[in-house]
Protein backbone atom coordinates (compact mmCIF):
# COMPACT_ATOMS: atom_id res chain seq x y z
CA UNK A 1 0.00 0.00 0.00
CA UNK A 2 1.27 3.42 -0.90
CA UNK A 3 -0.13 4.73 2.36
CA UNK A 4 1.22 7.84 3.91
CA UNK A 5 2.48 6.68 7.28
CA UNK A 6 3.33 10.14 8.57
CA UNK A 7 2.27 10.30 12.21
CA UNK A 8 -0.86 12.35 12.81
CA UNK A 9 -0.82 15.20 15.32
CA UNK A 10 -4.52 14.74 15.93
CA UNK A 11 -4.07 12.99 19.33
CA UNK A 12 -3.44 16.40 20.92
CA UNK A 13 -6.61 17.91 19.49
CA UNK A 14 -8.63 14.74 19.96
CA UNK A 15 -7.79 14.61 23.68
CA UNK A 16 -8.74 18.28 24.11
CA UNK A 17 -11.93 17.62 22.11
CA UNK A 18 -12.80 14.66 24.31
CA UNK A 19 -12.08 16.48 27.56
CA UNK A 20 -14.14 19.49 26.48
CA UNK A 21 -16.95 17.28 25.21
CA UNK A 22 -17.15 15.38 28.46
CA UNK A 23 -16.99 18.53 30.55
CA UNK A 24 -19.69 20.29 28.52
CA UNK A 25 -21.89 17.19 28.66
CA UNK A 26 -21.55 17.03 32.45
CA UNK A 27 -21.65 20.73 33.34
CA UNK A 28 -22.78 22.62 30.23
CA UNK A 29 -26.56 22.49 30.66
CA UNK A 30 -26.51 23.56 34.33
CA UNK A 31 -23.92 26.28 33.68
CA UNK A 32 -26.05 27.76 30.90
CA UNK A 33 -29.08 27.58 33.15
CA UNK A 34 -27.30 29.32 36.03
CA UNK A 35 -25.41 32.09 34.22
CA UNK A 36 -27.79 32.71 31.34
CA UNK A 37 -31.26 32.07 32.74
CA UNK A 38 -31.53 31.76 36.53
CA UNK A 39 -29.22 34.61 37.56
CA UNK A 40 -30.43 37.15 34.96
CA UNK A 41 -34.07 36.36 35.81
CA UNK A 42 -33.39 36.38 39.56
CA UNK A 43 -34.51 32.78 40.03
CA UNK A 44 -33.39 30.38 42.81
CA UNK A 45 -30.11 32.11 43.65
CA UNK A 46 -29.46 35.15 45.79
CA UNK A 47 -29.02 38.33 43.70
CA UNK A 48 -25.49 38.61 45.13
CA UNK A 49 -24.37 35.29 43.60
CA UNK A 50 -22.74 36.77 40.51
CA UNK A 51 -22.07 40.25 41.87
CA UNK A 52 -18.75 41.90 41.09
CA UNK A 53 -17.31 41.29 44.54
CA UNK A 54 -18.34 37.64 44.50
CA UNK A 55 -17.00 36.92 41.03
CA UNK A 56 -13.87 38.97 41.68
CA UNK A 57 -13.16 36.86 44.74
CA UNK A 58 -13.99 33.69 42.82
CA UNK A 59 -11.52 34.54 40.05
CA UNK A 60 -8.88 35.39 42.64
CA UNK A 61 -9.00 31.96 44.19
CA UNK A 62 -6.94 29.37 42.36
CA UNK A 63 -9.87 26.93 42.26
CA UNK A 64 -12.20 29.54 40.80
CA UNK A 65 -9.60 30.76 38.31
CA UNK A 66 -8.79 27.19 37.30
CA UNK A 67 -12.49 26.40 36.84
CA UNK A 68 -13.11 29.41 34.59
CA UNK A 69 -9.97 28.72 32.57
CA UNK A 70 -10.75 25.04 32.05
CA UNK A 71 -14.39 25.67 31.12
CA UNK A 72 -13.72 28.45 28.61
CA UNK A 73 -10.72 26.83 26.93
CA UNK A 74 -11.86 23.21 26.84
CA UNK A 75 -15.36 24.10 25.59
CA UNK A 76 -13.68 25.96 22.73
CA UNK A 77 -11.17 23.18 21.98
CA UNK A 78 -14.08 20.75 21.87
CA UNK A 79 -16.12 22.94 19.54
CA UNK A 80 -13.17 23.88 17.31
CA UNK A 81 -12.15 20.28 16.68
CA UNK A 82 -15.72 19.21 15.99
CA UNK A 83 -16.35 22.10 13.61
CA UNK A 84 -13.02 21.40 11.86
CA UNK A 85 -14.20 17.88 11.05
CA UNK A 86 -17.72 19.06 10.17
CA UNK A 87 -16.26 21.40 7.57
CA UNK A 88 -14.66 18.36 5.98
CA UNK A 89 -18.03 16.58 6.19
CA UNK A 90 -19.74 19.26 4.14
CA UNK A 91 -16.96 19.30 1.58
CA UNK A 92 -14.80 22.16 2.84
CA UNK A 93 -11.51 20.37 3.02
CA UNK A 94 -9.13 20.75 5.90
CA UNK A 95 -7.09 23.64 4.56
CA UNK A 96 -4.78 25.94 6.44
CA UNK A 97 -7.51 28.56 6.88
CA UNK A 98 -9.90 26.04 8.47
CA UNK A 99 -7.10 24.91 10.75
CA UNK A 100 -6.19 28.46 11.77
CA UNK A 101 -9.79 29.33 12.59
CA UNK A 102 -10.83 26.08 14.28
CA UNK A 103 -7.73 25.62 16.39
CA UNK A 104 -6.54 29.25 16.48
CA UNK A 105 -9.60 30.61 18.29
CA UNK A 106 -9.40 28.03 21.11
CA UNK A 107 -5.66 28.63 21.42
CA UNK A 108 -6.16 32.39 21.53
CA UNK A 109 -8.95 32.05 24.12
CA UNK A 110 -6.82 29.71 26.24
CA UNK A 111 -3.97 32.23 26.31
CA UNK A 112 -6.24 35.21 26.78
CA UNK A 113 -8.17 33.55 29.61
CA UNK A 114 -4.92 32.58 31.33
CA UNK A 115 -3.61 36.13 30.92
CA UNK A 116 -6.78 37.52 32.48
CA UNK A 117 -6.76 35.09 35.36
CA UNK A 118 -3.09 34.74 36.30
CA UNK A 119 -2.55 38.39 37.41
CA UNK A 120 -5.47 37.97 39.79
CA UNK A 121 -3.68 35.05 41.41
CA UNK A 122 -0.33 36.72 41.91
Amino acid sequence: MSANLKRSNQPIFWLLFGAGGMLSALLGPMLVFITGIAIPLGLIFSPETMSYSHMHAFAHHWIGAGFIWVIVSLFLWHAGHRIFHSLHDVGIHAGTLARIICYGIPLLATVLAARSLIPSLI
Binding site: A3, N4, L5, K6, R7, S8, Q10, P11, W14
Partner: peptide, 11 residues
Protein backbone atom coordinates in the same frame (compact mmCIF):
# COMPACT_ATOMS: atom_id res chain seq x y z
CA UNK B 1 0.39 0.90 15.27
CA UNK B 2 2.12 2.76 12.43
CA UNK B 3 -1.11 2.46 10.39
CA UNK B 4 -3.23 3.46 13.40
CA UNK B 5 -1.11 6.55 14.14
CA UNK B 6 -0.81 7.70 10.55
CA UNK B 7 -2.54 10.80 9.17
CA UNK B 8 -5.18 8.65 7.51
CA UNK B 9 -5.33 6.27 10.45
CA UNK B 10 -7.95 6.30 13.19
CA UNK B 11 -8.24 10.07 13.55
Amino acid sequence: MEMVNAEDGVF
